[in-house]
Amino acid sequence: MSCTDTTAHLALEQLFVGELSEVAHLELREHARTCAECHEAYDRLTRVEAQLEKSRSGLPAARMKFLESQVLSRAAAQKRAAQARADAGGDRSLWTRVRLWLVPAGGLALAGVLALMLLPKSPPPGVDADGFQARGAGAAAAKSIYGVRAFCIQPEGAKNVSPKVLAEAGPGETLTCAVGNRVQFAYTAPKDARLTLAAPTPAGDWLTFASRIEVKKGTDVPLSFSTPVTTSWLSQPIEVKARFEDPATGKLVAETTLKVTP
């Protein structure tokens, strides 16, 4: 019994009794990904609810509604992304494109992370055990082919207040982004790829921002979702590992490690 996140505990109970909002549900899920206790409680309470309802899918009906709405908002973001790619002229600044992605999101569980230029794969000594390879800014500057950049964005406040980029992280840097803001990622890839962005947690698990999402070749293309910063996933610095794979063969083409801190 070590988790002291009372907000999460309350959220678990509210979820069970059917009084949790969808946004709070997303935050709870984010927390439970990295907290073994809340994860277990989430699972158990879900089972009770499903059993009560005699649910055929094994998930409570209200949960299915949440999932449906999350799938739909993600699909809408993907659609916008495809449209923006289609009519993205070279005259558009990265920021103009980033703004397109500041969707009212409802906060998707997935999100982009940080910024580093990655080198094509040619494993030098020092590749760590799990196959990811960190590089310094110097090495990265040598050949910037694949890359990920991150932005800390202050979300829209009152009506007509535009979102604002508070910080940006480039090669070898750390993005600092406080709770209440959103983290947005953009990638550069010379070829279509599958991109994974994940950070190991102290619990030995992975906090996954994007899992093998398909990305089209392009320069500084914002990911179609941004992530609200909450203490449930960013209470201490995290080391995000980015990995590009060949979409056809699944072979690794580039990888790196970088940090995000609250």
Binding site: R29, A32, H39, Y42, R47, G58, L59, L67, V71, R74
Partner: peptide, 18 residues
């Protein structure tokens, strides 16, 4: 259940990609 939900989300998201 949490992981299962994530998997359902992920599979549908892929099926709904343009």
């Amino acid at each position: 259940e949490l992981e299962l939900e994530n998997a359902v989300l992920e599979v549908f998201a892929r099926a709904f990609e343009p």
